[in-house]
Design a protein around this nucleic acid. Structure first.
Lengths: 191, 191
DNA sequence: AATGGCTCTTGACAAATGTCAAGAAATAAA
DNA sequence: TTTATTTCTTGACATTTGTCAAGAGCCATT
């Protein structure tokens, strides 16, 4: 099984080798240089990618600040769901934090998967439902935890990220300023 | 078109009257008294309902506090997605804030819709994707707004809720204490 | 090694939000 | 209506988090 097939299998639960192979044929390899944009707010997003290596930051520039929504790393998929599924203008700007290797599929090929694999729509549904549940959890952390608790919770589950990306982005994605993040960090390292 | 058919049509985009009718046949009417539990954390959730009248609160009791995740009102659907789709133990407790009338479908009947309507899985996918996008927005409010801004944003879009449910629940669902909520409220009414 | 540009840390202070306790107001129960 | 219960508001104060400004550390380029 190729790495791509492994991702598809684990995210969508596709089991048949021939199906996996057929699906993976639709993807093409693509690379981004550090700083390149995968997507910009307001533009069309007609692709979905799996990250083979590197990291991407999903964010939005508002009037007064830049809000990082998520950082996607190896093994994750990346797209603007509203853009990809509903052909709406992209909500997020997505930029490479490092050189990035991707497996990318475009919308028209993606649609073909549904025609090829009868169960695809259901697998996709289950996939998006899992994503929904993850967001539910994330909202819950904001309703129930302090900045420090969110820091610890995220750190426990994403230790490796802390020495790979600028910390200010992690701070933003946890809903706090870089200064607060830095102080909590100091406290956790010393205490 | 019945009220139920209207909901199904607007949420799932089912267009054919005969399909709508077939789907709506699977639903049964159900009522809850104020205070009754639609679902309790940890139990199985094998039903999904549309709210014909009344309000339900979706929340979770933690060690030290009760966190309201959402309040569902007329026209909305209600379920524990992880429980309903993945047959996982329910994450949320769902309780009637008032007497409630529901249209309810159970999981086994729900599955039958998929067999009846070829496009169902796709419509469902789109439906859940829309829910996902709504949660993305909600997370964004927590990353980018103060308590006061979240209050105003929510108030503008849900004025009617403010004189229908205990405000402490709205406070919790916006991620602030009842006291903070009350002070912001005063400020907005006076200023 | 020196330069420049980011990024992170720190301090001092300000603002926002939480906590606790009391009482007022609203709602439900009798 | 009266009483009881819950919910909301308010004040005083504590804590958390944000803001601003300066400087330290780090990294890449020269």
């Amino acid at each position: 099984m190729t790495e791509l097939e492994h991702y598809i299998s684990s995210y969508f639960g596709v089991a048949q080798p021939e199906d996996l192979n057929a699906i993976s044929q639709f993807f093409r390899q693509e690379t981004l240089k550090k700083g390149d944009f995968f997507l910009e707010t307001g533009k069309g997003c007609n692709k979905l990618s799996f990250i083979q290596s590197g990291m991407l930051r999903i964010y939005l520039q508002t009037e007064d600040k830049e809000v990082t929504q998520w950082i996607s790393t190896k093994g994750y998929f990346v797209t603007d769901l509203a853009g990809f599924v509903f052909e709406a203008p992209a909500r997020w700007t997505i930029q490479a934090l490092s050189d990035v290797e991707l497996f990318t599929i475009n919308r028209s090929d993606y649609v073909k998967i549904g025609q090829l694999i009868p169960k695809w729509n259901e697998l996709e549904k289950l996939f998006i439902a899992r994503c929904f549940v993850i967001l539910e959890d994330r909202i819950f952390t904001h309703l129930s935890m302090t900045a420090e608790e969110r820091y610890n919770f995220f750190f426990e589950n994403n230790k490796e990220l802390f020495n790979q990306v600028p910390l200010q982005y992690i701070a933003s994605m946890l809903g706090m300023t870089p200064e607060t993040f830095s102080r909590i960090r100091k406290k956790q390292l010393n205490g």
